[in-house]
Design a binder for these strands. Sequence first.
DNA 1: CTGAAAGCGCTTACAG
DNA 2: CTGAAAGCGCTTACAG
Lengths: 343, 343
Amino acid sequence: MTGISADPFELHAGAGKAATLDDVAARAGVSTATVSRFINNPQVVAQATAERIREAIAETGYIPNLLAGGLASSKSKMVAVLIPYLTDSIFNDTMQTMVEELSAAGTTVMLGLTGVSEARTEDLIRAAISRRVDAIIFTGPLTPHVEAMVRRSPALFIQVWDLPEDPIGIAVGFSHHAAGHDIARFLMSRGYRRPHVVTAKGARANMRRDGLVAEWVAGGNAAPTEASVEVPSRFGHARRIFAEVRRLDHMPDVVVCGSDYLAQGVIVEALAAGLRVPEDIAVVGFGNSSIAGEMRPTITSVEVDGARIAREAIAAIRNRAGAALPQERWIDVGFRLVARESA
Amino acid sequence: MTGISADPFELHAGAGKAATLDDVAARAGVSTATVSRFINNPQVVAQATAERIREAIAETGYIPNLLAGGLASSKSKMVAVLIPYLTDSIFNDTMQTMVEELSAAGTTVMLGLTGVSEARTEDLIRAAISRRVDAIIFTGPLTPHVEAMVRRSPALFIQVWDLPEDPIGIAVGFSHHAAGHDIARFLMSRGYRRPHVVTAKGARANMRRDGLVAEWVAGGNAAPTEASVEVPSRFGHARRIFAEVRRLDHMPDVVVCGSDYLAQGVIVEALAAGLRVPEDIAVVGFGNSSIAGEMRPTITSVEVDGARIAREAIAAIRNRAGAALPQERWIDVGFRLVARESA
DNA sequence: CTGAAAGCGCTTACAG
DNA sequence: CTGAAAGCGCTTACAG
């Protein structure tokens, strides 16, 4: 009704302290309880009241204080996502989907980068609990001390990318051992004889390696040659890896890499050395990131549905908020070997 | 003194609700004020008192509630970092450094992925203000409506990767126009005659393009041929870009790319087509990500010190918290052209 | 160096 | 459908 710029409330809002629920309530002529209901559950307030509140919010530029809201309701609408590195290609799809969908649902994402440090992991988990997050999404195992801390907290703990025997909360992932098996069978079916297995440091990569080697040896073959790389496993590790391969007494006929980026690097090195891929040396990646299908030659890889991992994790959080159904403790999203040109 | 497992407090802690300041204070025989001081400013409490509080915290497994702390102190110790995509290689170093250093300093990072959507940007900024973040770090311009919202909030607004004329808060970045200039001069100095300029959609990339074209034409040359790619600019865009290059009447002698990944893709395509790089066609990247130095051939690129951008932004937040010195509004971190094998 | 007490800005039974 | 009021768990002048 009145001109907005002539309005004293407006001046207050602009002048310094932010508008509060009280300001909105006073202006709309209702109690703060009603404004709170309108914001969190609009359909319970009467049409006419809702309209007045809507106007009051617009006029005051009110933005709720979620610190206060979270304290009062003991629901923070925040979830912590902890990964080792931002450049760990393997988690890209999971992270992108997770952050997008959580944000779209009005949940704030707290990002933590643990590296390979247990101390950083502990600090980040403590910080998450301090913020009273609704859930903590993490990609690895925990030390007993931190596990105890997590169990004491009401946050839902979700381990992604793996399926441990006894998850702390729930797990969304796949069997790395089985993935290793399948790669071994693929190599045998293609008639490769001398694989070279490059494993990144870390529990999951080791499980894949173990699965691969076990199946390979069970097939009556001699143990493969091996190498290891630091995490995050990157394109740039390929120079050393390839140099080592060339120094082997017997050159391998296929290099199995722990990531597509590393596989890409090995291909580049091999081509630069005048070798043909896959004729002279074949290459297998892992993760099926977008470059796997875009590289020349295209890269044989193992596809993991990272976006689905994200969605299942989010669904688990939602289910628990609804306090509905008893939850599954393991959600297996599987994997799929995608044969392309490189092997 | 007493066995921990026989301790009734311990049982309470494990049994459900988390320990609060009151629990710790009661157990240590001091007031909550003193415990609060010990936690936030340990040196102001007496040695003996500190020791008792330390024990009480350990025994109760107390973890402070930062929702309550933030509400009471109106300092959230949280900063929002908003970028378009997680896979936007160009921000990798900045993000990694930012998140690591903020976490190390006890600040929580809220991550937002805006895509190219103004609506998502607005929602995320509103969410950040709702959480009463101390600062918002953002990579682009804002619509007037959102800008007004930000100005009304007490959060420090930091625009990174660019130096706008009139930043909302402060800006930490470099001149994209100048970077374009320098690339043009580099091309001339190397004797290239027919550049093909591939620009990602977006204001910053366009500024580089404008700078490049202006300088190139000022040097008495005909305008370069051009192409554009979607953001985030990726390896995979290279197939189309290269196919277009081949269809040009006059093949360019150098392709200037908006990212190192795209440059890498163009090199792979060129090599697969039997061309030599840089003899038959040269390639320039942008960002100097790690692959630029690792690719074969290594990629000529423009180095931007992303980690320094992160550090300057964090320093600005700290300065303001100290309410010290009047702040610079622009922090220019510059850039540097790194000539390598590809051009 | 420490304590009593007010207050931060919300939410939520409870009652009507 | 709405309001009065207690309470969430901290911090911080103020006083001693």
